[in-house]
Design a protein around this nucleic acid. Structure first.
Lengths: 199, 199
DNA sequence: TTCAAATAGTGACAAATGTCACAAGCCTCC
DNA sequence: GGAGGCTTGTGACATTTGTCACTATTTGAA
């Protein structure tokens, strides 16, 4: 039991440091905020949520590695984004509008998260208004990152996208399979295999 | 002069209705908000801002049609998004972080806008905190739209992207050239030409 | 350890797309 | 009305990428 509380407190420390990079908080404010988060663990190859399910939470990742995955009509998987330590992830549309998920959140590694419900999210925003600024900063950051990724699809061929990925996320390349990387880059596994050979 | 004020007031009515779809405002709140906006007109083929320039404003479009364009090292243009009546547009990264633009905002038609500076944006957010919720809603909407577009690049070939565009934006198809559409879809002009022929 | 499943590499071929070149049609401005 | 510019369509060909089939290697679980 002691171990449990220790772990939980460490998690909350990580969360607080993360938030305070954007807005500063009093102890009271943070204790109100943190009361809405719940810790949860997932194992490698587990889904946090699947397509078609409800998505009651947004997840703050403490450790591990997940992918946000879309399955198309042919059963093919497409990876929208990776999320790891210190990142927030969810199916944003499904979470905010309380709809069924169009994507799934899948763990590539054992992953520890703090989850926050929409109610908790709204309560936090109304009780600690500056948290709206925090979430706004995160949303803007996500939007900017998505635009960069759109550009990478329009501008450059698969080979250059691969090289960019190597430069930008060298630490990730170690942790994921080529199949997963191919799905993120939007090319077939075979094509990626040839790209990594020819340069 | 009378004409000018009339036009301006109509513009502000549009803005108010737009905001009040998300949050309700008192007259005092709206007058504080609107005092930070300035009307500006652009002609067809004009740049609102170019790559490498500063982007001091976010723009709310009253009428007309613009594209957010990126120029790559080969001088090729790639269209990130269209923006028309009732949409917000800017180079978000450049605006928020006061950096040089990586994209340009170009008018495909004569366009009327209301512009808002970062100072004005921050003032509005601190004086009328619920506006932070409004901007958060817009940012989230933009993020969700960008993710959809990433999926469209990963999932489907150019032909299907073209058909989706036809279904989703039939009104836009009337207003833009095939060359511009090709750049948005991420294919060459010639390929698009062949797609529209074969169905 | 051993066997099955997952992962990765590769060759052959087909399909999709880009690039280059050219011509036809349309619009605008003088 | 004509000249020039912009847009569009199209053919020929090269390149890229996907798909399929097969094999080798690694991983994981019994």
């Amino acid at each position: 039991m002691a171990r449990y509380f220790t772990t939980k407190n460490i998690s909350l420390d990580i969360l607080r440091r993360h938030i305070e990079r954007i807005v500063t908080l009093t102890d009271e404010e943070f204790s109100l905020i943190s009361s809405h988060f719940t810790a949860q663990q997932f194992q490698k190859k587990q889904f946090v949520f699947r397509p078609q399910e409800r998505v009651p939470f947004v997840y703050f990742i403490l450790s591990g590695l997940t992918v946000l995955v879309h399955l198309d009509d042919n059963g093919q998987e497409h990876i929208l984004s990776f999320a790891m330590e210190d990142w927030w992830e969810t199916d944003l549309g499904a979470f905010l509008h309380q709809r069924h998920a169009t994507m799934g959140l899948y763990c590539l590694e054992d992953t520890a998260m703090l989850k926050l419900s929409l109610d908790g999210y709204n309560t936090i925003c109304s009780r600690v208004p500056k948290m709206e600024r925090f979430f706004l900063a995160k949303a803007n950051g996500g939007h900017i990152a998505s635009q960069q990724r759109i550009l990478s699809f329009q501008m450059v061929d698969a080979k250059l996208r691969y090289q960019w990925f190597l430069e930008r996320y060298p630490f990730l390349v170690q942790r994921i399979s080529k199949t997963v990387l191919a799905s993120y880059l939007g090319v077939s596994r075979e094509t990626l295999s040839r790209l990594s050979r020819s340069r």
